[in-house]
Design a protein around this nucleic acid. Structure first.
Lengths: 195, 195
DNA sequence: TACTTCTTTCAGTAGTTACTGAATATACAA
DNA sequence: TTGTATATTCAGTAACTACTGAAAGAAGTA
């Protein structure tokens, strides 16, 4: 099958739902989600791409994303890959089609737990490790009678406070991660009941 | 009282605890805390300054901070102010001394709830607002029979999922913020018991 | 094989954020 | 008042991050 090349493109130039009312709503959501990206440690463009995939709820290809968000092919490609690496969108192959499609996970709880798990592993765990190590280094059998020193004791108190906080926080995270496969999870239900 | 000017400085050049063992431990903590800054939406230097004030547990002045962390006066001044604005460190005036001192809050739970409250207000609340507005804009009395459209329904489902998630998250935050004045708070106690 | 369609990579650049250090302001003391 | 110790501000710059677009690569088709 031969085709004037522009035809192939035109088919997809405005590939999406596109009732203006719907489009406006989606754009609104996308913009705001992009602005919030920082919370998740994800940059604006990545957050917008994710928002687009999430809010439309259908698989889109690279050109769909480029056209709708006005970003370059390179940026689109890299951001899509990064989102796949995070695991909050998925690559999709369509029978008989060469190009690849991408779709977002539909379950917000699952997405949250994926992100939380990864950030805990990358950012909290090492800090907790360091704190525990610091506490060890200030123990009497490491520094002898210096352990009685005022300054040392103050520092140890502070380390203890931080360790308690982070251990508890870690446990809470763990629960989200372990349970949040779908919908309201156990932790949240317990919490809401208790309040 | 007249003083050779260098004396006044020398007094404070290495003003801090300074048993090498203690210092090493503190530096360790400071470095790691700085690296983790991102989680809190606070940059490395600010996080390090905060870590220093937290871990030593005594009030320090601008020069103490500059000397210990090797940062410029300007940067120190601005970062200290920003930390004061966040409310996680406090300015201290000492009788008969001209220079100002700064000290960190000692209670990690309190610091956490201060930061969480502020970030919720600045980052989550507006998004939730937008989502609610999106849902409103897609209601039948706004867009009529278009509301039955497939694409519209998909988008509405996604918005609903997100709204549920964010509302619940908000409630949990609220509890931390409301209760976490000191030590293990109600929410955490409930959680730990339930798990 | 060569051709087409689509994807990935990456050097270069634009845009952003963090930091310095000198100038300026403030606040107290003599 | 002037002098001194301290704090703040901010223009300029360094360092970093995000983005583009062209080139190369991959994977399928004729």
């Amino acid at each position: 099958m031969t085709m004037v090349e522009s035809d192939a493109r035109v088919e997809r130039v405005v590939p999406l739902p596109v009732e203006p009312a719907l489009r406006t709503v989606q754009d609104d959501f996308i913009r705001k989600w992009g602005e919030m990206g920082a919370i998740w440690g994800i940059n604006r463009t990545m957050a917008e791409i994710h928002a687009l995939l999430y809010i439309t709820g259908i698989p889109l290809c690279t050109d769909d994303v480029m056209d709708r968000l006005h970003i370059s092919r390179g940026n689109t490609s890299m951001s899509l890959r990064a989102l796949c690496d995070w695991g909050i969108i998925r690559r999709m192959h369509r029978r008989g089609e060469r190009r690849e499609y991408f779709e977002s996970l539909g379950d917000v709880w699952e997405m949250f737990s994926i992100i939380a798990a990864e950030r805990k592993r990358r950012e909290m765990d090492p800090v907790l490790e360091t704190i525990k190590n610091c506490i060890r280094e200030l123990s009497a059998d490491k520094i002898g009678k210096l352990a009685k020193d005022d300054a040392v004791q103050r520092t140890r108190e502070r380390l203890d406070g931080m360790e308690e906080f982070m251990s508890v926080t870690n446990k809470v995270f763990q629960q989200f991660v372990g349970n949040a496969k779908s919908g309201l999870n156990k932790v949240v239900r317990v919490l809401l009941k208790a309040l």
